[in-house]
Structure formats: C-alpha cells, structure tokens
Design a protein around this nucleic acid. Structure first.
Lengths: 205, 205
DNA sequence: ACAGTAGATTGAAGAAAATTAATTTATGGG
DNA sequence: CCCATAAATTAATTTTCTTCAATCTACTGT
C-alpha cells in the first residue's frame, strides 16, 4: 500500500499568483505614460527605487501602505490599480467615424436615432443623436429601464415627461434622470428637434 | 447668489496614514455582513487568523498577494476594498437651463469647459461642452481617473491620445474609453473645436 | 451564581518577505 | 571616451506573516 501523504486540499489559486505582476505592469504603464522615471516616482511617493523596480516586475507584493503612496505619486486612486484591465485585448474601439454611424430603428414615430459612440457588445456609456420631427414622440407608453441618462437639446425643443411631470426644454437646455423613472418625450413644436442623448448602463454580469 | 470665496488650499495627504485602517474596517464589515468568523475567512482565503485580525485592526498593512486571497475569500473584487461605498441620495434636479450653465476652470490652456447637465453633489453622468481654441490642449500630463468617458466632435477637430496612441477626430467623429487609461487631447487645427464630452463616474463617498 | 466548555479573537516569537541604501550594469548623447 | 540618466542587483534592515499559546465572550447545565 502506497501512502500518499501529500494532500491537495486547495482548489487551485486561480490566476491569483499573477496579481502582483498585473498590478506591477499597470504601475509601470502609468508611470511611463507620464514620462516619469523610477527615481522620479520614488521621490514623489516617498519610496525607494529598488522597491518600485521590484513591484513593477512582480517580484515584490506591495502592501496597502505602499500602494497608497504609489497612488499618491501617480495621482490616481488605489482602486484604479485593480480595475479590470482594458489595455489592448478588448475588441471595443475607441473612435467611431461619422460615416460609420449606426441608425437605430424605433417604433416611435417621427424619430431618428443614431448611435454616435463606437459600437460595443456590452452597453456602457453611449451617445445618441436623436432627431425628432414635429409631432414625433417616443410613443404612448413611458420607458422604464436600468441605468442613467442625460442629454442636451441642440436645436428646437421637446417636452420631456419624467414621473408624469412635464419639463419643457428649449435650445441648450439639458436633463438627467435615473432611467428607472418612467419617462417619455414629445416634440410639440413646429421645428425639427435635435437632441444629444446619452445613456449609461452597467455591464450585465 | 453669493459667490463662495472659500478656498481649498490642498487636498492634503488624504488619509494616507489611515488607509490600512480603512481597508481593515471594510474587510471586517464585509466579513461580519456575511456572518463569517476570522477563522472561517482564514481557511477560505488560505491565511492565518492572526494576520486577518491584525489587518482588520489596521496594525498590519496587507500586501497585494494577501489582498488577492482576501478578495477571493470574501468573493469580491480587490477594487471593492478601495471603492467608497455608494449610496443613493437623490435630491438632484432633472433639468438645467442654458442660462444657468456652470463654467469650469481648468489649468489647461485655450480650453473652456461648461457643465451642461444639472449640477449634483455626486458626480454621475455628466455632459460638458468643451470649446478648444487652436493650440489649446488638456495640458502636458495625461489624465488618469475613474469612470468612463465618451464624446462627439461638433465642430473643428482634435487629436485625442489614449494609451499613447493618437486618434485624429474630425466633425461628427466620436470616441469612448475607460478613464483609467492615460488620455489627453489637443487642437492642432486652425479652427476652434467644440466637443460634447460626457463622463460617467461612480458616486464617491 | 458558578463552573465548564466551545468558539472567536488577540498576543508573542520565530520564519519569511518586503523595503531600504548602496552598488553595479546598461543606455545614450557630446 | 566620459558624463549623465535609468534600471537592476546585492546586502542589511524592517515589516509582514505564521504558528501556537493566551485571553475573551457567550452559552450550558446544575
């Protein structure tokens, strides 16, 4: 009988070993992005150059105290060092060209909706250009959904209803509200209205 | 309206000495919120009970490696330990009038920034109108902060730099990126540029 | 009330690591 | 080459981290 004294109780530390390296690379990236040398950052943060060198290479695991000093020296929040990396792997583009704009179909009448921001699979912060003809509206039933929205009237005017309250907006006026409050809009004027409309929605997990 | 002449001299060394304690209290709070004992968390995270006790009391400054294990044991992201708790206080207005727009002062040269959306104490989804004169720019050092931003060029053109990559934007072009990627902008053209700039930031405590 | 007991937390000393200061290697102009 | 700047290495010190013992708290039964 073979006695296997080695027991493997731990369920594999998933990618946790790499956290130091990920954080280190993030720090190095941020430092280089603003043209700082290790020595420069070290004096700004009150740390030694050797430590920063090791942290950036993933050899050393920085403590909260050190992270706080580094964040101060880099003028960022500590949490920025741990936010999911969006470095290069994401397929989301940064720029969208005017000729590539997507037109969104709506059941609303007399309304054209164009997505201005680069297309992404996950809805996040998006900007739309809404063109609302006279008598055009979002439809009979108010919208209720997640997220937050805001906008600016560029031309013309609209009537915005939020929680059954009416707001009359002219050129240059703006609005913002949580999207879970019932809302709808209407162009009661004689001129075509153009509105910059922005939406923010959390990524669905 | 009275002009508030109070000056904030310096954000000072914002609570850097207390970061360990703040993080510790956050961990303790999270642990107790799910009815875990130190021992329980220790075995789940693969750490000693004494260490967790010291971290929670602010006596010890946890390293990134330890933070990763704790976050795993608490089933949260590391950044959650540094993000301020968000709350929903809503006394904010829905509409802002064009005549009430607030102008924001910048150290950037040749740039005017106007807040279009209704003012709120907590920054959330905000829309700005940026007017960038020829040769105007965001300044020498790139910005790095939390949140996400997007925008549309209404008139003129700008050069946008994200992660040291250059994007040249003309009228109607748009952009979107996570604000923790180093970014800056510049108007290299001869015409004044006007850009709708939107920002979304989680509520800060 | 009083032991007794079990679970939870804290304290102390040695092992392991992070951190500093000093040195060495590498890189790039005049 | 020589000087200046940046990054990596080495050795000494400080701090974190673990193991284990001690203290504390809450509850049980008599």
């Amino acid at each position: 009988m073979t006695i296997d004294a080695e027991i493997e109780p731990k369920p594999a530390k998933t990618a946790k070993r790499d956290t130091d390296l990920i954080v280190g690379e993030r720090i190095r990236h941020l430092r280089l992005a603003r043209g700082q040398s290790i020595k420069n950052l070290a004096s700004g943060a009150g740390l030694s150059t050797a430590l920063i060198s090791q942290i950036e290479r993933g050899i050393s695991s920085a403590s909260v105290r050190v992270l706080a000093k580094l964040a101060d020296g880099l003028d960022i929040a500590i949490s920025d060092l741990f936010e999911p990396a969006l470095e290069d792997g994401d397929g989301d583009r940064i720029v969208a060209r005017v000729r590539d704009r997507r037109r969104i179909n709506l059941d609303a009448t007399g309304v054209t909706k164009e997505l201005l921001t680069p297309f992404s699979r996950e809805p996040r912060l998006d900007i739309y250009m809404m063109t609302i003809e006279p008598d055009g509206s979002s439809g009979q039933d108010p919208y209720v959904h997640q997220g937050e929205e805001a906008g600016v009237v560029l031309e013309g005017g609209i009537e915005l209803y939020v929680d059954n309250r009416q707001y009359i907006l002219g050129e240059g006026d703006s609005f913002r509200f949580a999207s879970n409050r019932p809302h709808r809009y209407l162009n009661a004027g004689r001129k075509t209205a153009r509105v910059i409309w922005t939406l923010y929605r959390e990524a669905t997990e």
